[in-house]
Design a protein around this nucleic acid. Structure first.
Lengths: 160, 160
DNA sequence: CACTAACAGTTAGTTATACTAACTAATTAA
DNA sequence: TTAATTAGTTAGTATAACTAACTGTTAGTG
């Protein structure tokens, strides 16, 4: 088959082997991202904080519950996290006049800028590491990630 | 090229694109693993706890500093974490008679069993998700992970 | 219409992770 | 032998996460 030609001799992996590889590989990647985000001079963010801001960038005017659901945490946790971001001036929290139970969350100017700086800095650091790979290897990474992305999309939410 | 044949029409990605994909994809995966490990009936473990046990499985008789370095945390953090695992009866901590500054850490019987149960349960849950993929897709995942593993191996440790 | 359900958000209290700083004890180097 | 380095612990702080208990707000039902 083409697959074996294009990547030298290569034994097709079982789902179990892939799972094991994933469990081993994911930690150093997380570690790297965490360290990068924490080490930014100004605007150091934790990974969860980054995720809140990134979600609000893609979904402006979100409610707290929407943030909580996306992060996979309780509303209590999201509330506290958002509170810190509001205090740091990165997020604006206001009452929704339509549904007064809801709060409307959106990035402030600062929040938007800090997020973008962080996103680019982290992406570039990772990209620099990845530039050691050959074009073919980059292709594998890209396609592998696409598959994983599909598989894990809504995997966690499913169980009640 | 073979690459384009074997995966239909596919534009080669830049390192930057791969980095962006990685940043997006890694969170749902982590989420899933965290939820799985936390939801085990008996022997619920956090991800960091799991990593400590997994390291001690591969490196018995390790010192605290070795654990700390592998996890990428300070000795203070490692000390506290190990302390909890000792209290839970999963890890045995004893003085090293050779070097009396060191402590010798190793899994207890319970720790070893709990770890193995957790490893297999989590791996199977992930494998089940991955079994939706075609053999070719599994190949991409596997090879992509291999590349990422190489790249991120010692990426974090480097900076002083 | 009133009363109850359900929903959204917050607060309090607890546990775990992680940090720095300050400390003790042990080993190595000057 | 004193000084410096190394290993580990402890104290104090911040963040993240949970459950449980609470206040409002909206929707449903008799």
């Amino acid at each position: 088959m083409d697959l074996q030609n294009s990547a030298s001799v290569y034994q097709l992996p079982t789902p179990d082997q892939c799972a094991a590889a994933l469990m081993d590989t994911i930690h150093p990647i997380m570690q790297f991202m965490r360290t990068e985000m924490r080490s930014q001079r100004e605007a150091s963010l934790s990974v969860p904080q980054f995720r809140v801001l990134a979600f609000l960038r893609r979904h402006p005017e979100s409610s707290l519950s929407e943030v909580a659901e996306h992060l996979g945490v309780t509303r209590a946790t999201a509330s506290t996290m958002v509170d810190r971001l509001v205090q740091r001036g990165l997020v604006d929290r206001s009452a929704d006049p339509e549904e007064r139970r809801h709060v409307r969350l959106q990035l402030t100017q600062t929040g938007s800028e800090d997020l973008e700086r962080m996103r680019q800095a982290t992406r570039q650091k990772i990209a620099k590491l990845l530039s050691d790979l050959s074009p073919e290897e980059l292709g594998f990474v890209s396609q592998g990630l696409t598959c994983l992305s599909q598989v894990f999309q809504d995997a966690t939410v499913s169980e009640p």
